[in-house]
Nucleic acid binder design. Structure first.
Lengths: 205, 205
DNA sequence: GTCTATAGCGTGATAGAC
DNA sequence: GTCTATCACGCTATAGAC
């Protein structure tokens, strides 16, 4: 292999195909019903061949889960990095919501696999995945705390509850959002921000 | 069996035990990994015996799913029925949110099975379950439309999106709500209502 | 009503051919 | 690198004893 080969050996390509296939099967069938035969069929290979690239089924699925969380985390970090220094804390939350929703709704099955199998992972896999998840959660924890501390958001509500309700509203969108429809992830983000920041109540005139 | 025996024959009791066990397994393992052996073990019977009470695995699981949706639907209808005639439309939404959250968080595994397997059902089961689900969705559609029409809620937001974001925030709570903690479902409902109606933004003084 | 036994097939993982 | 063959085991569903 030449030095400049964009790092895509034949092995790397097969590995990537197996990961993509595993993400799809995990998202549509759930952890316990994801089989190596189904993954292999989708990746155009055989179940036995997967063991050349991954030590076990769990190691393969853990890599899928980490990739899903990392995808969302990096998208949010990138969006926040593009803001001016010392940004408006509400604007930062809006940017994070849009980045998370775009990642979840249009970055393929990795994020869906994460969300759908969240509550169904066996303890050893959940434990292995927890650190990556907690890191991402901390990003949101800081965003909300910063906005409250700056006086932009109310300080009379439990911040953990706020964060988890917000993530719930976003994550559940994988179950109803239609990529073919006229509503884009960006528009959905705009309505969610508007709702959660300003509220649904009609202003008294 | 005497006429007055509270309708609980031995057969009915076994049937109920099997349904409870199936709801638990479906919630923790997902549709495709739910096996009759696991259900039978939990219900203190044998896999073969399940076929005396249910025609097939799918028929059993469909009954679990319908029961879950009906539980939430009836809880919300009951809560709305207790309100005065011609109720405040925002108060009606608050009552529905509390009833839905209490049902989802403390009525056992039936609602959890619904939420967790929502996106992983094979098409024939999803289709069979769709009418019950749509009926429940209509309850929420009407609640939101009534509040907008009465001028209590803003009319510049897409109502379908509002409804689905709200249901998402509620449904995802099964993944993080801790029944042992000091936060009760009622308190969670109060914060969700406050957030979604009034918004998180700090009022300008 | 509940059981056991059985049918045919699919499972994760490994060994070894090529 | 990828394949086929194989292991012991678990799956849904049915048949028939009790």
């Amino acid at each position: 292999m030449s030095v400049r080969n964009s790092g895509k050996s034949k092995s790397d390509q097969t590995r990537a195909r197996i990961l993509d296939a595993a993400a799809h099967v995990l998202a549509t069938r759930g952890y316990a019903a994801t089989t190596l035969n189904l993954i292999a069929e989708r990746a155009n290979t055989k179940a036995g061949s997967i063991y050349y690239h991954f030590a076990s089924k769990d190691e393969l699925l853990l890599e899928v889960l980490e990739a899903g969380t990392q995808t969302a985390h990096e998208a949010v970090s990138r969006a926040l990095g593009k803001l001016e220094p010392d940004p408006d804390p509400i604007g930062a939350i809006q940017a994070a919501i849009e980045a998370h929703l775009v990642a979840v709704l249009s970055q393929g099955p990795y994020t869906t696999a994460n969300i759908r199998s969240y509550g169904q992972l066996p303890e050893h896999l959940a434990a292995a995945h927890r650190e990556v998840q907690r890191n991402y959660g901390t990003t949101w924890r800081k965003l909300i705390a910063a906005a409250v501390d700056a006086g932009a958001l109310r300080n009379d509500l439990d911040q953990r509850t706020t964060r988890l309700l917000l993530l719930g509203a976003m994550n559940w969108s994988i179950e109803w959002f239609d990529n073919e429809s006229t509503l884009t992830p960006t528009q959905l983000a705009a309505q969610l921000c508007d709702t959660v920041i300003n509220g649904l109540r009609r202003p008294t005139d």
